[in-house]
């Protein structure tokens, strides 16, 4: 793991840099706008942090970036746990 810490740090910093991320529509969204099918999009499903914002708190670029930085650590933790469970189960099966 020691060798990987610098890359995890880069990832967290990168998520923080998203305060300067472009807010223009992405490739699919801009095609949907040009071809007039954006209105087909259904209202989003329930989720704990919709659109990288804390419900009830006023959304801002800083808040989004902070949620992204914490989200990065959460993705790391979940992926780490999953990979460890997979490796353990393989060891048991052997």
């Amino acid at each position: 793991m020691k060798r990987w810490w610098p890359i995890l740090l880069v990832a967290v910093v990168l998520a923080g840099l998203s305060i300067w991320a472009s807010t223009l529509p992405d490739g699919l969204e801009s095609v949907a706008e040009a071809l007039h099918f954006t209105e087909r999009a259904a209202p989003g499903h329930a989720s704990p942090l919709p659109d990288y914002a804390v419900p009830g708190l006023e959304s801002s670029r800083w808040a989004n970036a902070l949620v992204g930085m914490l989200g990065t650590l959460l993705v790391f933790a979940i992926m780490y746990g999953l990979a460890r469970v997979l490796a353990r189960r393989a060891a048991v099966e052997k």
Partner: peptide, 26 residues
Amino acid sequence: IPALAVLGAFIFAAQMVQFPVAGGTS
């Protein structure tokens, strides 16, 4: 195990950084 976890985190974070491209699109 850490390789999978760190790369997952890196990809998640990098996907948040939208960069503008031509024609009002990112």
